[in-house]
Amino acid sequence: MRVSILQFPGSNCDWDSEHAVKDVLGIPAQRVWHKDQLPAETEAVIVPGGFSFGDYLRCGAIARFSPIMRGLKEFAAKGGQVLGICNGFQILCESGLLPGALIRNDCLDFRCLNQPLVIEESNERFNPGTFGESIILPIAHGEGNYRADETVLSALEENDQILFRYDGNPNGSMNDIAGIRNSTGNVYGMMPHPERAVGSHHPCLDGLPVLKAFFEPLMQSRPCEVSVS
């Protein structure tokens, strides 16, 4: 098993993520309960979307203290690949694996739509050469309004840590930020849902290049068959 998909009480994108990784990309994956240990053979982790612990207190605030988070932090510190999607992004921010915080959308509405995104030149995996200048991904969140202080924000800009920005800001996010990575380039967080854009029953297939870019280090270390190109 190469990809671990964390499951908290209230996670609801765990199965979609597993489908996208295992059935569509052909990479072995399994869901791992938050009270279990992170399996030793894990090569990448997805922290999926949903409403972990009912979003009580703050989104991701309680999941942060789940037993599996200790293993996740050690995994990330060793350079392991981690992707947080939607609530997963909120959890990574709460746990300090990514900078900043996500607060209530400025419109106070839950935004559920197919969102155009502008691709930023972030690193060799996430850039307009890989994805094109813009893509569309589904968003579905009430707390996606990215906030950070000026120092953090300018560091994100200067180090090219912004992956994509909203084209038409749906939630009030600072600098239109929709997704970021950490400075070392192994922890990624995004409010849009790439796992909901990987099949003919989805609004588009723009999630595929995003997931492939994230999993690229795994592909290089031990190539595996990819069912959709």
């Binding site: 607060i103 209530r104 400025d106 106070l108 309004n145 906030r147």
Partner: peptide, 13 residues
Amino acid sequence: SPKNTVLDPQGAA
């Protein structure tokens, strides 16, 4: 409480 420097959409509403 939300920091004074942080936007508070709920407070605004």
